[in-house]
Design a protein around this nucleic acid. Structure first.
Lengths: 157, 157
DNA sequence: CATTTTTCCCGTATCATGTTCCGCACTATA
DNA sequence: TATAGTGCGGAACATGATACGGGAAAAATG
């Protein structure tokens, strides 16, 4: 995990369809070398997977919301975690702050969100929820590596 | 945008490295047909881009946090939006709720988060922030399309 | 209802790309 | 000075992406 790897990750994060030959040109390497690096990063788990970014509105899910959940006792029960079965749930984090759990959900509309909230409330141990409806998303992207190219040259890997 | 397209999107979201031939098998189509569908979905903007999922910890960014920002007046000023220059900021949403703006940030550690918060506070119009530190991420994925395969056969496109 | 147009699909052929293999240069270790 | 390990690149091969032509079905049109 060196500076080249970090640059490589940043390029792939922008566009994972780039050919190894072109990627090599940007990095000053040959295609096989880049291929080996990517292979290693995948096996190490640095690259978790390659996916597509889907436009939520285009598939009929224009309503993005963040739902904070307050529980009594230990909230991270199997029942609570099973909410991830719902395709509308994109993220589920256990957080420290004035709430216990944070959900990121993408719904067809307010009705679907209400249904989802009902399910949350029906979960044992849930005391309350607080929802934030996204009005506009100014940015949404994965982890960036540019910063590390400057600062973090201690090669933390 | 039909049921096949939605199934296609769901498969690609899981693994965008799949070959068109294999993708075609799963959908009951030939490789060229799938190719045309994907091409169209990309040109339509349904598929925004293909990228890699990077393990935040592996690149030295283990601290995930959600920062709610309360502003006075119209908070979405150019100064506020310029916070997206910072590679640590992964998402910036304008939200409805008891705060105005929601940031998703991934930092090297608490020190880096503090620096970022200082920058937020230095932004004109910012009244207060409330941060939620992720203790554990149980799930993190993009928009799903499975649900639509069952319910939403009205082909909303 | 007949005709035209559009849409969607497939098989084939070609070409670009991914992937493997092997030898070289460099480094570190003893 | 050996020796093993690592990363790189060129060439060769395997695989997959992409362009093209044509046919069937559906939709639009008269």
């Amino acid at each position: 995990m060196d500076a080249t790897d970090r640059k490589l990750l940043a390029i792939l994060a922008e566009d994972a369809t780039i050919a190894f030959r072109d990627l090599g040109e940007k990095l000053g390497l040959s295609a096989p070398s880049v291929y080996e690096r990517v292979k290693k990063l995948k096996s190490q788990g640095v690259i978790k997977r390659t996916t597509i970014e889907i436009d939520g509105e285009a598939i009929g899910c224009p309503l993005l919301a963040f739902v904070h959940v307050t529980t009594e006792g230990w909230g991270k029960t199997p029942e609570m975690l099973s909410i991830t079965d719902d395709p509308r749930v994109e993220e589920l984090h256990s957080v420290a702050g004035d709430t216990c759990i944070l959900l990121k959900v993408r719904c067809e509309g307010t009705l679907a969100l209400e249904q989802l909230l009902k399910r949350v409330y029906d979960t044992p141990g849930v005391r309350s929820t607080r929802s934030y409806i996204a009005l506009n998303t100014y940015m949404e992207r994965g982890p960036r590596t540019e910063l590390f190219m400057k600062n973090n040259n201690k090669s933390n890997c």
